[in-house]
């Protein structure tokens, strides 16, 4: 989760319009999906670095990548068993590209701006708002979950080792209070939204607005060119020198 939690900073990446960053995440993910060649993926991956560095996100990013070590190991084992080792490497780079580009988005877009960008994409206000509301309450619910664990442990609750079923049953003392508390909270939030004129008029105004600036247009053009180039390469592989298509023998 850490990899996707917004941090307030004032870098060029943070200032960019959320839509530009969403475009970046989408284009990079498409590129990661259409290509399988290790070298091409690797270059795509490398090209993300300037963004990560410019956004001062290197440490966070390393953390999130490290958090996926287990997944990578699984990928290597299964792909090597059922396919090739080479394939597993490209799978890993692929996933790193997608995770990096999306965490770049979530780490640098203020959740309230996220709502605005959804609105500009013609998502209805209610849906966009609930999206940003859930972001707002992630830390609150995390703290509540910890308090529940503390309260239950204080009365002798232990996370027992055991089979899957007994472990699942063991979660009940945590899950039920969490559900009850979250439901209560949801009620309180709804009450307080109603009391603040939520949904009282169709002509809602906005205090903040997002605007496509010159640098956003510039980056958008670059991204789209990159995408077009990617598609051309995919259709006409001879466009690139042959060493790009090198594969591991295993």
């Amino acid at each position: 989760m850490e990899a996707f939690k917004f941090i307030q900073k004032k870098t060029i990446i943070h200032i960019l319009d959320p839509r530009t960053k969403l475009l970046l995440a989408i284009i990079y993910s498409i590129l990661a999906i259409i290509f399988e060649e290790i070298f091409i993926l690797f270059f795509v991956f490398l090209s993300l670095f300037p963004f990560i560095l410019a956004g001062q996100l290197f440490k966070k990013w390393i953390k999130s990548i490290r958090g996926m070590t287990f997944l990578f190991l699984l990928l290597i084992i299964f792909n090597t068993l059922f396919s090739t080792f080479s394939r597993s490497i490209s799978m890993i780079i692929r996933i790193m590209i997608m995770v990096s580009s999306f965490s770049l988005f979530f780490l640098t877009v203020h959740p309230d701006d996220l709502m605005l960008s959804l609105l500009s994409l013609k998502v209805p206000y209610n849906i966009a708002f609930s999206f940003s509301l859930s972001f707002r309450f992630v830390p609150t619910i995390a703290i509540e979950a910890q308090n529940i664990i503390d309260a239950q442990k204080s009365r002798g609750y232990e996370m027992e080792q055991g089979g899957l079923i007994s472990q699942a049953r063991n979660l009940i003392p945590l899950l039920i209070p969490l559900i009850v508390c979250s439901l209560k909270r949801a009620f309180h939030i709804a009450e307080s939204l109603d009391s603040r004129a939520f949904g009282s008029t169709k002509n809602r105004t906005y205090y903040y607005s997002i605007k496509y600036a010159k640098k956003d247009w510039l980056l958008t053009i670059i991204l789209i060119s990159l995408f077009i180039f990617g598609v051309i390469v995919k259709i006409f592989p001879e466009f690139l020198p042959t060493w790009f298509y090198w594969k591991l023998k295993v």
């Binding site: 917004f6 309230d112 008029t201 105004t205």
Partner: peptide
């Protein structure tokens, strides 16, 4: 309400205060 935690819905104070007026189209 009693618990401010449940009535603050925005990610910063300024947006929080703007929320009501935005809703009535000020």
């Amino acid at each position: 309400f009693q618990n401010p935690e449940n009535q603050l819905i925005a990610m910063n104070v300024e947006r929080e205060i703007a929320f009501g007026p935005e809703n009535i189209g000020v």
